[in-house]
């Protein structure tokens, strides 16, 4: 039954994927039309050649869709193609190509799924190339982002979990620190960026600081809540077994509050991954957030979409790690 359920949902997922790609493909599909070539009769060619026009040039203009009367005008100018090009092309000389033969339709500006696929494949097969400061493999850029997230997040955990323990165990600390937490928590992490840039100065450290500050609150409040709501019976078990404060904290309160704490950690890593993209867009230089901004500025939408897709995949993996950790510490009463 379960297998059948899994199979059915997998099939449905694939159907949704294909329908999505299909819609995407057709909404971005514009047939690329090249210029309509023009054929000249032998007399016309001879007439042009008699006006000192090279056979090569006649062929070129014909492939560009320039009609005979216009070509006669060009020939009458007695200029070579190089000189015409230097002057800005035939249009600049007042000779126009008839509309129906006009220049290629550019296709859609928004990349189609197949273009993304090509770009994605190129990224996956060569993720770590370095061709310049603004042209590095997405693997390297992702590495920069992950490193910042890991440093900022680890610092936040190192402070939030012990502090949360203290707040959860002591009603005095809980009440004393609560107003600060309530005010600081709703501030958008990016609002800290100017302060960080001014005080810390270094843009690298500033983005780490922003990750730190945004990861702090969910872990802090969840740890405090988890610790404060440990069943009193379990604490009594520790008390009747004469466990000291430290031993009680590690053998009873920590395992009892672990599911809530890990939930906080999971929320934090999710927020940190959201924020790093925005922070790197602001700070620039390296990182996957910067890549998105950079590709947008270069109008390489196909590469930008690949980067966005990879942000999603990495975020999913980060969440999955904490999901696994969460299942490991969860208990049923």
């Amino acid at each position: 039954m379960l297998q059948k359920l899994e199979l059915r949902s997998a099939v449905l997922s694939l159907v949704i994927l294909f329908v999505g790609l299909f819609i995407w493909h057709f909404s971005t599909y514009v047939p690329v039309t090249g210029p309509v070539g023009v054929e000249f009769s032998q007399e016309q060619t001879d007439a042009l050649k008699s006006q000192n026009m090279v056979a090569e040039d006649i062929e070129f203009y014909a492939s560009q869709g320039v009609e005979f009367p216009q070509l006669e005008q060009i020939a009458a100018l007695g200029l070579s193609r190089e000189m015409i090009d230097m002057a800005g092309g035939i249009q600049a000389l007042g000779i126009s190509v008839p509309d129906e033969n006009s220049a290629p339709a550019p296709g859609s500006l928004f990349p189609s799924p197949s273009q993304i696929g090509v770009e994605l494949w190129a990224t996956i097969t060569d993720p770590f190339y370095v061709a310049g400061t603004n042209d590095m493999g997405y693997g390297i850029q992702m590495g920069y982002s992950l490193l910042r997230v890991i440093i900022g997040y680890t610092l936040a955990a190192a402070i939030a979990i012990p502090l949360g323990f203290l707040i959860g165990m002591s009603p005095v600390f809980y009440r004393a620190l609560d107003p600060y937490i309530q005010i600081l928590r709703p501030i958008s992490p990016l609002a800290w960026m100017p302060i960080a840039l001014f005080t810390i100065g270094d843009s690298e450290l500033s983005s780490i600081f922003v990750i730190f500050i945004c990861s702090l609150w969910p872990m802090l409040s969840n740890t405090a809540f988890g610790v404060a709501s440990v069943r009193h019976d379990w604490v009594n078990v520790a008390r009747t077994h004469e466990l000291g404060a430290l031993k009680t904290a590690f053998t009873v309160i920590l395992p009892a509050a672990a599911p809530t704490i890990v939930t906080g950690m999971r929320i934090s890593i999710g927020i940190a991954w959201l924020v790093i993209v925005a922070a790197e867009m602001l700070v620039g230089g390296t990182g996957i957030g910067y890549v998105v901004w950079n590709e947008w500025n270069g109008l390489r939408l196909d590469r930008m979409i690949v980067a966005i897709l990879l942000i999603g995949v990495v975020g999913m993996l980060l969440d999955a790690i904490f999901g696994k950790l969460q299942r490991a510490v969860t208990y049923t009463e």
Partner: peptide, 29 residues
């Protein structure tokens, strides 16, 4: 004064630590 190992308690709601096995709950004590 205060709880002590000299006075063991069996609570009505068992008060077993749910993340430990039955054996671990006893070895805990």
């Amino acid at each position: 004064s205060g709880p002590s190992l000299d006075r063991g308690v069996v609570f009505q709601n068992y008060s077993l630590l749910p993340w430990l096995s039955a054996l671990k709950n006893v070895t805990f004590g």
